[in-house]
Write a protein that binds this DNA or RNA. Structure first.
Lengths: 137, 137
DNA sequence: GTGCCATCTGTAGCCGCTACAGGAGCAAGC
DNA sequence: GCTTGCTCCTGTAGCGGCTACAGATGGCAC
């Protein structure tokens, strides 16, 4: 028997115990069989699924996207749909990066105004209070 | 009187009506005076504060950071502290960008595996299920 | 006076967990 | 057989930062 309890599953999959239960509760992963005393027992199939979810989360997929990916994996591999989900997510990552880079540029420029501590009023606070719009905001 | 109601304040500041009330509720902005009928009236000072919060949010500051910035602005301008908060936030933006760029690289490489639709099994799902660790995960 | 928007309070929902409380199971040591 | 100390159980509430209602007034135009 290569079955493990929820703690072992957490160690093997890298998903926290509470998170595993959470995923089960919201129906993201299927409830595993239980021992006679009612404790969850995870076999290779369930562990593989948990790893899948952890990897997809690490790539920033939402739980809904992961749900869709799991369904596509279980059904007959609609490869084009998988690609579509992944590509859309990739585009969104790009948008997030662009947003953050705009923030960084604006904020860096603002911080640069405050070179030392010899200023009369704090230029950072001034910049945040000014009437002109902030770039990217 | 250049005072406005909460709707006008929302238009002028760019902060939604519900969000203004939310900010007041959590004590981020001071409750403005009320009209005789109990409606909020915003003057230039309050509007300036709302704009400040909106700008800072647009730059990704958390509400707690903004609270600190507002306190520093109200008190005697501890410019070094302001700079400190801004610099730390800048560092965190950098970390987020780096995380997202790692995600993007990994995901792009994975999507690239699925060039067309002639593959036997979906390489994206395969990559997510494999045992080797995902880069950056 | 009547229509209609703005405003009021209060509460519940979103995402993706995380952190409890208060109990039961289980393996090892004495 | 009994204690010790971990694991596991269920259920609920909290986080940040809003957003979306419901149901009741306010205020102004026609």
């Amino acid at each position: 028997m290569r079955e493990v309890g929820i703690g072992g599953a957490a160690r093997v999959s890298g998903v926290h115990v509470e998170t595993i239960r959470y995923y089960e509760r919201i129906g993201l992963v299927v409830a595993p069989p239980r021992s006679s005393a009612g404790q969850r027992r995870y076999g290779p199939v369930e562990l593989r699924r948990l790893r899948f979810v952890r990897r997809a989360r690490a790539l920033g997929f939402s739980l809904d996207e992961i749900r869709a990916l799991l369904a596509l994996g279980a059904g007959g591999h609609a490869c084009a749909e998988v690609r579509d989900i992944a590509q859309r997510h990739l585009d969104e990552i790009g948008r997030k990066i662009a947003d953050l880079e705009r923030m960084r540029a604006t904020l860096a420029a603002t911080v640069a105004l405050c070179a030392g501590d010899a200023a009369p009023d704090c230029p950072i606070l001034e910049a945040l209070s000014d009437t002109e719009p902030v770039a990217g905001g």
